[in-house]
């Protein structure tokens, strides 16, 4: 996984609460494998109308922001299904950081597993940040300092410290778990004796 330190570049403001994972990537695209890439399906039904035409008013369709790496949402981003494809679609489109006042739990877990920063900002700051990004079209994220800057406006964000460390170092979870192989095996053995009923009858 690619480490994340700082990021400076184009940013998109999405003024919506409850952007659920069905909006991030509609379920009919979940058959697509990661190898094929999901970037062009990101926000598909918000970006395109029923005839497949781009909706000019959707922020991501701004030609100047096609290479955006930072997305500013609002309350409860990534709520809903567990589909990791929502994170794949964001990452494959080029996003490395999403900012919101709160995130769906499973989405936030999926994000860190793919090197995507899910940064939490308070409700007052998010409105200012949305406005700043709408004007400047750009933002800078510093994960170590936990700040986001757009124009002259700087806000602090929160992120779970364990997730921050993983993102900064680009650590893969499975590599971390591999260090505990012995403990897992020992647990499995004692648990088999302690809870024999927990194993399904065959």
């Amino acid at each position: 996984m690619q480490p994340f330190k700082q990021l400076s570049g184009a940013a998109v403001a999405l003024r919506r609460d409850n952007v659920d994972t069905d909006q991030v990537i509609p379920a009919r695209f979940l058959k697509i494998s990661r190898a094929e890439g999901l970037g062009d399906k990101l926000f598909h039904d918000l970006r395109f109308d029923g005839n497949g035409k781009l909706r000019p008013d959707f922020p991501l369709n701004d030609p100047a922001r096609q290479d955006a790496g930072i997305l500013i949402g609002r309350r409860n981003f990534g709520v809903g299904s567990s589909r990791e494809a929502a994170v794949y679609a964001l990452v494959d489109h080029g996003f490395r950081c999403v900012v919101a006042t709160s995130f769906g739990d499973i989405f936030a877990g999926n994000a860190v597993n793919n090197g995507l920063v899910a940064a939490i900002v308070n409700a007052e700051d998010i409105e200012k940040l949305l406005s700043a990004v709408e004007q400047t079209g750009r933002a800078e994220v510093d994960l170590e300092a936990q700040t986001i800057k757009s124009g002259n406006y700087v806000v602090s964000f929160t992120i779970d410290p364990a997730r921050k460390t993983r993102l900064l170092n680009g650590w893969d979870e499975l590599d971390l778990t591999a260090q505990h192989k012995g403990e897992i095996a020992a647990f499995a053995t004692q648990d088999r004796t302690a809870r024999p009923w927990a194993v399904p009858r065959t």
Partner: peptide, 20 residues
């Protein structure tokens, strides 16, 4: 607990997962 695909692979490989 509902989990994502990376966690699915983690459970498949280790029968464990990390949780806060």
């Amino acid at each position: 607990i509902g989990i994502g695909a990376s966690e699915v692979s983690h459970v498949l490989l280790t029968q464990t997962f990390w949780q806060k």
